[in-house]
């Protein structure tokens, strides 16, 4: 599988992607770290180690990019947008709803959004499951463990 897919012109490869990522992080390190003091070898400032590390990241990143261009390995696997989007959307909904809508509504929402990411989801059992999870997690996290999240939407009596 590896060598059969070689092609002459540059293309995406795992090394190339990782290298670009490292370079990006190095760039953030260099730019956001400029304001930090370097200090001396005895009393190093907060910027000393980040600078060293950004340099290391840049070197490793460049090397990965070069390697990826020179000897392209396997192509990165294709992303599957559907589960990726919906699972992350479910987490985003939790962030949006947890303190506004209360836990019952939020958990139910998270369950439904996450389930859209699964092509095999069936809706009727899911509704029951969402109701069960909403009640169970509320009982466990709010009532038993005292996690300070509202159970009902804001402004509903309690």
């Amino acid at each position: 599988m590896p060598n059969s897919s070689r092609r002459p012109r540059p293309r995406l490869s795992n090394d190339l992607m990782l290298g670009l990522l490292l370079l990006a992080v190095a760039a953030i390190g260099f730019s956001a770290g400029t304001g930090l003091k370097l200090g001396s070898a005895t009393r190093m400032g907060p910027g000393y180690v980040p600078l060293l590390l950004s340099g290391l990241l840049a070197i490793l990143g460049a090397a990965h990019v070069l390697l990826g261009l020179a000897r392209p390995g396997p192509r990165p696997e294709r992303l599957d947008a559907r589960p990726f989007f919906y699972i992350l959307a479910a987490i985003a909904f939790f962030i949006f709803g947890a303190e506004r809508l209360g836990l019952i509504a939020t958990v139910a929402g998270v369950v439904f959004i996450a389930a859209v990411g699964d092509r095999r989801a069936r809706w009727r059992p899911l509704a029951l499951w969402a109701a069960f999870l909403a009640v169970a997690t509320t009982g466990l996290f709010v009532n038993l463990l005292g996690v300070p999240l509202p159970v009902w939407p804001k402004g509903w009596g309690g």
Partner: peptide
Amino acid sequence: HLLSPALVVLCCLGVYS
């Protein structure tokens, strides 16, 4: 398809707590 939404909920609540 039932386990995965439950895991997402648990991840969120676990991290929040």
